[in-house]
Amino acid sequence: MRLPDKVVERALLLLALSSVAVLASIAFFIVREGAPLIYRVGLSNFFSTDWHPTAGRFGILFMLVGSLAVTVGALALGVPLGISCAIVLGEMAPPRARRILKPAIEILAGIPSVVYGFMGIVVVLPWIREHLGGPGASGLAAAVILGIMILPTIIAISLDALEAVPMSYRDGSLAMGATEWQTVRRVVLPAARSGIVAAVILGTGRAVGETMAVVMVAGNAVQLPHSPLDPLRTLTANLALEMGYATGDHRAALFATGIVLFLIVLSLNGAAGLARRRRRPRPRPRRTASVAGVPASERIPPSPVSDP
């Protein structure tokens, strides 16, 4: 018997909507559990440095700083590595090398985060302890592990962006006598820029959200890290460590932390979506007078870049 298209269409739509419903209910429950506490203690207390849940003081600032610090560190490692990897895979590697490297990177994405954490404990922590000092368990260790963990995301999405660049751009550039590298740098990367920005943003989201591996290597001390070698605690680690025994306001405070994480990840994903949709060439950095005879000194100077 053949199902009418309309029925199939409706059924599929319903299933598709269910994922939206799950997202909506997650948002609803964490807000319901966490928002009243933020309202009660006030934003300034909630974003203070004072985290003493047993004493009813719920300031998450140190954890927020910890999350930001390891994320920035992870990006510093993962972005250059990931984008270079995507360029090699997409533009330079011979097909045979690609056939080996691409699945390898996909496997990297499939390794459970606890395994990354384990590798961190047996490889990264001793190395830091011996060569750089400190306890080993630190923001730096978390950043290194996270930097590797976000590679598959950054590589896969950057690679998609590079592959979406029409071959005619490359042909045009090479036919002008550009080298392969000039073609990549001056034509392919600008053309793929929005997709690569999206890749970085999604990698950021993954770094902010990762929990298990970070708990295992970051040391988890609630404090302001003064150096990359100091232990720190991230928002996600705090949730994972304390949710098991938290009750009452403490539990509500952890849900409130969840709201913060949810907002960060949601806005990062939104930003990634925007970046992917926008396809505009970079404006010329310095547009001087269009008349060719005017000496450079009489031309309009470039507008100073204002720091935000």
Binding site: S168, D171, G172, M176, R186, P190, P281, R282, R284, R287
Partner: peptide, 21 residues
Amino acid sequence: FQRPNPFPLSIFENVVFGPRI
């Protein structure tokens, strides 16, 4: 080429592409 293939850059950057590289 058969299909016009300007680079996704500004008009100016397209023209000066060769002289630059």
